[in-house]
Amino acid sequence: MRILLKIILLVVTGIIFFTGLAFAEEHFFEIKAKKFSYTPNIIRVKIGDKVKIRLVSEDVTHGIFVDGYGVETRAYPGQDGSFSFVANQPGRFTFRCSVTCGEFHPYMVGYLVVLPNARFYLYALVVLFIGGANLFFISKKKA
């Protein structure tokens, strides 16, 4: 069952990825970091897009690390950091501060959403499917 799901996910991702590549865009985001949040805190791009990020600190030194992509940079007060990457995995990924910047540092996060958020839709479909199957089997139950 799980393997099947993985294959489906892979195929879906593959299709989306290659159709996405044809329409890939370039995005530039300037993210401001301030204890303990980012502005913008949620960035949305499409699969295959090229994403360039500049991190600007508005108080102390902060960092940014993107889950799943493994890219990281830091911004010191008055000195920006930047990186770029190709958004080749769909889904929502958390980006996190990578420099201890105060007590709430571990909670300083933002979201990168690479559309379409296939894994969310896939999981949601699985839930609905299970619910439906449950209903079906139960309706068939005899005393």
Partner: peptide, 30 residues
């Protein structure tokens, strides 16, 4: 150094966990 582990898979793992426990909830629910 601070090293996040498998955080790229976090969403997958969280989703799978929810689904497994949802299964239990409905199995006991009926």
């Amino acid at each position: 150094p601070w090293t996040p582990v498998f955080t790229g898979l976090l969403g997958y793992l969280q989703g799978a966990t929810l689904i497994i426990f949802y299964l239990f909830s409905i199995a006991y629910g009926f």
